[in-house]
Simulated scan of single mutants.
Amino acid sequence: MTALLNPYLSFRDNAKEAMEFYQSVFGGQLALSTFRDYHASEDEAELEKIMHGMLTADNGLVLMGADTPNSMEYTRGTDHSVSLSGDDEELLTGYWNKLSEGGTVAQPLAKAPWGDTFGMCTDKFGVPWLVNISGAAPQA
């Protein structure tokens, strides 16, 4: 059996905009469902908010997100980070460039002490990202 890790991001009133942004970064298919679609809220102010969003990129990455209901507490950017890792330098650098644009770079994408290329940024929606590009395997 295979297990997949799918980050799930919470937003306050801008999940649609955020998920469309991530689709512009990663490509793929975006499915969005509102609270109205599932009859999941009696609050008229919530009916058009996103109850569930799922982005499935062509390369298999999956990212989910939703608006937090008004009745629930929401603290932006303090309860998660999203990690992208692998050895495809061109692909991961492209993701880094798009995610960091308009955001805040905490650690520039550069050679790390452990030999990989690593960077940390917070995108323009307040989501913290970690990008790790694996270095070449040590020679024996």
Rank of each mutant, 00 (worst) to 15 (best):
V127C: 11
G77H: 07
D58G: 15
D79Y: 14
V82S: 14
G53I: 00
A140P: 03
H80P: 05
L91V: 10
R12H: 14
D88Q: 12
G135N: 04
T68P: 05
F125D: 09
D79K: 14
T93R: 06
P7M: 07
Q107E: 11
T93F: 00
L92K: 06
K111G: 04
M1R: 12
G60I: 06
A45S: 12
N6T: 15
G27D: 00
L99K: 01
S24M: 10
A15M: 02
Y95C: 00
K16Q: 08
D116G: 08
L4C: 13
G102K: 09
G102V: 08
V82D: 10
A66E: 00
D87M: 05
E44Y: 05
M51D: 10
S85W: 14
G60C: 05
G135W: 01
I50F: 05
G86P: 01
P113M: 11
R12I: 09
A31R: 10
G103V: 08
M19G: 02
T104K: 07
Y8A: 03
M51Q: 13
T117S: 08
L4V: 15
D123W: 06
T34H: 09
D79W: 12
L4I: 12
F21K: 00
E42M: 09
I133L: 06
S83C: 15
P108K: 11
T2C: 00
T75S: 15
K49Q: 14
D79C: 14
Q139I: 12
G135L: 07
S85K: 15
V131R: 00
G28L: 04
L5P: 03
G77S: 06
G102S: 11
V25M: 09
G60T: 08
C121F: 02
F35I: 03
G102Y: 12
Y38P: 05
D123F: 09
F118I: 04
A18V: 02
G65M: 04
M120Y: 08
L5E: 07
E90S: 10
P113L: 05
G65F: 02
S100A: 15
Y22E: 01
S24N: 01
E44I: 10
K16G: 06
G115K: 05
T93A: 07
W96Q: 02
A140Q: 08
Y8D: 07
D58R: 10
G86I: 08
E48R: 06
D13T: 11
T117C: 08
P138E: 07
Y74T: 04
